[in-house]
Design a protein around this nucleic acid. Structure first.
Lengths: 349, 349
DNA sequence: AGCGTTGCAGCAAGCGCTTTCTATGTGTGA
DNA sequence: TCACACATAGAAAGCGCTTGCTGCAACGCT
């Protein structure tokens, strides 16, 4: 029924071993032999049995990419960059790996499940993107898993995620969320804003905390008291931004600016402000974070911090493939760049 | 070093066969024995070797999801829905499959490469999303691949993609792009528009052609001549929409409406119109397609056709998992729903 | 001419699991 | 009490590939 290595060997009049070596190209095979084998492969339309070779060689060509939300371009952009470094015709033959993205939906259990599944597949590498959940038990479980993966020879790379315990041997590309958050708020303060609402992400995510810390650091640096009621938590989506904004407006109608945890949330905030009859930035300024593609198209265009998602993904992918040396210390901090656009202005009055 | 089935068997004082049966749960094992085995699994922290079991059982638990552009929410939303039906804690134990998404970047070669890679892995199922490339050679190559996959026991499902040749045994969920395109244009015609520009997607995609055909059908039905110069092709991204709009305006400044191939393109079109000093919808109406989450937040909100991406993905996932019967004939047409919003209005004058 | 090298191909032993077939123990009907 | 069915566990034969080692020419050197 299905063609096996042995069939190819028979047709090419060589031993299975030789066919294997031609296909893997890691052992000298005479040119004429090689050609004969390749012809047989072609004629029989042979496709290597992945599981069998993974078993025999004790490694597979699978590379897993974990994302929190595949429908969110933030992750999509990183995933695309990572995957393009990993698989397909990008690299020359031999480096043909199957880069696959797994959607955890932000759920710790699913994250662990996927990690186990990838461990089971003896994945060649795993890239974890985006913020981590700050739950001691879960963090420990993930760290343990990563350790085990590393022990089994799986390369582990974190992309846009804080470093894991160093004994996990994971390389980390971390976004400077704190710095970006701070810059954004300082930009607003520089314009004269003093009463700023903050729409944070889900409580337990590192990204949420870091960005918020940046915001508070900016306030503190300028002697502006932090008003706890002006911070509202919600999910990283448009709707949460919409509702949080209405809530903020209810709590403090005199806010002159809204700082959103990311661009998607900021978009929701803009909608809420508009629906409340407020103009941006005349009545209220808005800032986002990430600089996703649609942000420049918002009306007015969003002031935000540009994160080099694609570049970070590319680097992460290269490291995962072992094409690039891991940085010393295993940690790289990636900074964002403040993009000042139409959604921020001088507060009126 | 790594724990194997045999280790677990030894610890539980049973044969490897029994452990395997407990883990796969498809053979009677006494409750007490099962428990003993499970305990041993736990104590040793055993993880099944995927390649080995795939080899022995001649099937794997991998399910591939092919998308054209993972950074595009259109695909992200479908992929998320598909994946959530496939893997993880969603289903109860046993149905634990690894749903993985592969980004083809719209490249025919990559599509084929991924299909081969999945074939190599003996994937349990493959879901292809989004429009296909209309290139005879490539279409034939894909059909052949799908045939082979089906022969090897891989279930093949198309989601938002036109049906493949029936001998491929692929189940197809097809979006009614033609009908949606027609509705959109008829809506504009109903408002009184006669001079409408059309921003189409890449030439060779089925989606592009079908939507355009719908547009033309609407024109024809109302006796409006189709002006070839008022149709411009470009990629399915914001920038293409921006540039195409400028080009359309150059060719025909008196256009009263712009029909974009999808929402992303429509957003670019809006930006171009604004930058040209035109107001939406007072000067020019704009329509999109897909109804992605951001479309309702555009200013003005985009009139578009809502495609039930998530629902379609869920169904596709269920069929791929064999949890849902494939429809008779293997083809389902999914219709979109016209969403009239602020970006369209009566043409002035 | 003799012998150590070198270059290439084959042999065969697994990799860790699944599954068919067989063996064993227990309960039942005659 | 004995034969027989039934339920459960084990033995063992692979699944299709990789790879360490061995084998054998042909080659170059003294």
């Amino acid at each position: 029924m299905t063609v096996t290595l042995a069939d190819v060997a028979a047709r090419a009049q060589v031993s299975p071993a030789t066919v294997s070596r031609v296909l893997n190209g890691n052992y000298p095979v005479a040119a004429t032999t090689r050609e004969r084998v390749l012809r047989a492969v072609d004629e029989l339309d042979y496709v290597l049995n992945g599981p069998a070779s993974a078993l025999a060689a004790a490694t597979s060509d699978l590379v897993g990419i974990l994302v929190n939300d595949i429908a969110d371009p933030f992750f999509g952009i990183m995933a695309a960059a990572i995957q393009s470094e990993i698989g397909g015709p990008g690299g020359r033959a031999g480096g043909e790996r199957l880069g696959v993205v797994c959607n955890t939906g932000g759920s710790p259990e699913r994250e662990l499940t996927y990690l186990t599944l990838l461990q089971r597949q003896r994945a060649a590498a795993v890239v974890l993107t985006g913020g981590a959940v700050e739950n001691t038990a879960h963090a420990a479980a993930v760290a343990t898993k990563l350790r085990k993966l590393a022990d089994a020879g799986t390369r582990v790379v974190l992309c846009g995620r804080p470093p894991a315990p160093s004994d996990t041997e994971a390389v980390a590309l971390t976004f400077d969320n704190r710095g970006g958050g701070r810059e954004l708020t300082e930009h607003l303060i520089g314009l004269g804003h003093r009463r700023m609402g903050y729409i944070a992400g889900p409580q337990e995510r590192t990204t949420t905390r870091h960005r918020l810390e940046g915001h508070r650091a900016a306030l503190a640096a300028h002697g502006i008291p932090d008003e706890p009621a002006w911070t509202v938590h919600g999910r990283y989506d448009r709707r949460a931004g919409y509702e949080a904004t209405l809530e903020l407006l209810r709590r403090e109608p005199s806010l002159t600016a809204v700082v959103a945890a990311n661009d998607t949330v900021a978009l929701g905030a803009c909608a809420a402000l508009r629906d409340s009859g407020l103009r941006i930035p005349d009545d209220v300024s808005v800032v986002g974070f990430d600089d996703l593609p649609f942000s420049v198209d918002a009306v007015p265009a969003l002031t935000t911090v540009r994160l080099p998602l694609s570049e970070a993904g590319t680097l992460a992918g290269r490291i995962a493939m072992g094409r690039e040396e891991a940085p010393e210390g295993g940690i790289v901090t990636v900074r964002g760049e403040l993009m000042v656009r139409g959604s921020t202005g001088v507060p009126k009055g």
